[in-house]
Design a protein around this nucleic acid. Structure first.
Lengths: 242, 242
DNA sequence: CCACTTCATATAACGTCGCTATAGCTGTTA
DNA sequence: TAACAGCTATAGCGACGTTATATGAAGTGG
């Protein structure tokens, strides 16, 4: 690729943009500042990124891949609920470590770019939740659980970013985290077969079966039968009345 | 004040700015657009508001007072927990009714203006929670409860705004709302369901669901559907395909 | 009725912004 | 060498936020 002597203009632009974006606290950063800091003239920026927004997108994309990397680096502990806590805390930590990036990613006004970020984060969280569902630890579908958890996670992180670093009370995060988790999952470890408390156990069992069926399809049912079966299962899983 | 014939330029500016800000979906609105729409020239804007930001601040302040008005118009029902639900739902409703205003108020990048908005909303919510605390329904301080609830409330509203209006699932709001409330208050709603230690086998899950269905029949399926569903469930339970 | 002050609006322009038409430079390939 | 492709630089355009200056309107004292 490139020698170590000096980074290519493209990389210099990326770094300059990221640095300036991080320094100037939310105030807009001009292309002229960036190109000057990268010791490059304007057309170079537009040759490589097409747009000012294209450059910022590249910066954000880098930050986001860093976020996903951090998420992926969290091992599966075997205790699905504990995994959920880890991912929640990791999300908050990333937001506090990269507040500017985080605000662009999740607090952004633009109703176009945000969804892709949110969707990716949501999809990842849903994977973790699917494992919890497979262990019959969820009382709602992984999809619903992921949306609720992520929404609360973002809300908490935004609030923590908004207040001065000195006064930050991480108890807010832990408290809200436990609230959402306890609403989405069951945290004890007994057997659902012996659980006869009523409808919630039906939902739990249905969700668990649904998750298990995603992994291995039974051969006792034809594909058309299975299709209808899954549809009904989905209906049972989606809690309507409590 | 003013006759009804035609609003003063100051008011025309405010209305034009609000309208343009609402129409142009998040994209920046130029002072020239605003002054043209208000049939006014540039210096008039700066005479009345000093700044473009000053004008936008005035628009936001108006929207925010509208929000606080809506909050205040919610009567005290005497059931503190039910009041919390009303205020949560009102918050979400305001966000969905005025998405652009809401994004500026609560999703804003600026780490200066947001806190004042959040602080006001938080203070108001804290009042409601104080009444709940007086009724011995809180398990945490009203301050902590307000922060947690508001964070989750904002997160949920942002997520609902972000997705297309047609696909909006308000269940996300209700579910997260109950999660936070049950973590913050003693409503005896928290129904900790016991469950398994996690064997992700289709057979085990099917058996669990089967057992659960013996106790309570779900109302999402008709009786004929349920009959066939149970039959298939039996088939899956009998012997697994892997 | 006329200065005189005061507030509100308009004319015209400045500096900076994002962006680009065009041209020049560099290295590779033939 | 010649031809070509990929980057980068010169110079400038139109649009933006903003303002120095001037003009109009409305009240007040003589």
């Amino acid at each position: 690729m490139k020698k170590g002597g000096e980074p290519a203009p493209k990389i210099r632009l990326l770094r300059a943009a990221a640095a300036l974006l991080a320094e100037s606290n939310g105030e807009p950063v001009s292309t002229r500042q960036i190109t000057e800091a990268a010791r490059v003239t304007a057309p170079t920026l537009y040759h490589h990124f097409g747009d000012k927004e294209g450059l910022f997108d590249a910066v954000v994309a880098e930050g986001f891949s860093e976020y996903l990397e951090a998420e992926r680096s969290i091992p599966t502990s075997g205790q699905p609920i504990e995994d959920l806590r880890m991912h929640w805390d990791n999300h908050v930590r990333f937001g506090l470590d990269h507040p500017h990036l985080y605000l662009v990613m999740f607090g952004n006004i633009r109703p176009e770019r945000r969804p892709t970020m949110v969707a990716s984060a949501e999809a990842f969280l849903e994977e973790v939740l699917a494992r919890a569902a497979a262990a019959a630890r969820l009382v709602v579908t992984p999809h619903e659980a992921a949306r609720s958890m992520l929404a609360a996670n973002i809300g908490v992180t935004l609030m923590l970013i908004a207040e001065p670093a000195a006064k930050r009370n991480l108890e807010l995060s832990a408290m809200t985290r436990e609230a959402v988790i306890s609403a989405v999952a069951t945290d004890s470890e007994s057997d659902p077969v012996t659980d006869t408390e009523g409808t919630p156990s039906v939902v739990v069992a249905a969700i668990a079966l649904n998750a298990a069926l995603q992994v291995s399809h039974p051969d006792q049912l034809s594909s058309s039968e299975l299709k209808l079966f899954l549809e009904w299962l989905q209906r049972i899983s989606s809690r309507s009345g409590s």
